[in-house]
Design a protein around this nucleic acid. Structure first.
Lengths: 71, 71
DNA sequence: ACATTATGTATAGTATAGTTTACATTTTGT
DNA sequence: ACAAAATGTAAACTATACTATACATAATGT
């Protein structure tokens, strides 16, 4: 939908979780590495379903992983 | 992405918030009424950004409004 | 009974999330 | 220095969220 108001802490969380690689996170979340790259770099924001799955990989709430800055 | 693992409490929340109509929620969330109808009925799940905006309308966290049942 | 407002359904079109493949660059280990 | 693993980038494609328009039905008020 809207522009680019969503950021995230995925990169930091990966390193705090046993140096998890993009590929490992992608596998655990059930998506391709390219999807993780794009989201981590902010190229686009994930679907709600993927946001839930990524948050679960880290044992965090969605709000702890993703931030929404209103536009 | 995946199938239909996401449900929500939007309908109940609307009634708990001054009998808010679908149109009013749509306006506050910045989308059309059709989008609210589709999400409320579970036809599809929202983007993460829209999930944030809907949750904010109700003053709730995303997890309080949307539930993810793993597949 | 009538008008009005709220909700359900449908369909075609647009925007964007996610895949796939491929290759370049950076980082890490020996 | 070299190989191997991790990350960055890109382009074409598929899947799905969202819009726009339209009309039907249900609910509410007078």
């Amino acid at each position: 939908m809207g522009k680019d108001a969503i950021s995230n802490h995925i990169r930091n969380l990966r390193f705090h979780h046993d140096e998890m690689t993009q590929q490992q996170l992608a596998d655990k979340a059930g998506v391709t590495r390219q999807t993780i790259v794009a989201i981590e770099k902010g190229n686009y924001s994930p679907s709600l379903e993927l946001a839930f799955r990524i948050a679960r990989v880290f044992g965090k709430s969605i709000e702890e992983v993703f931030q929404y800055e209103d536009g």
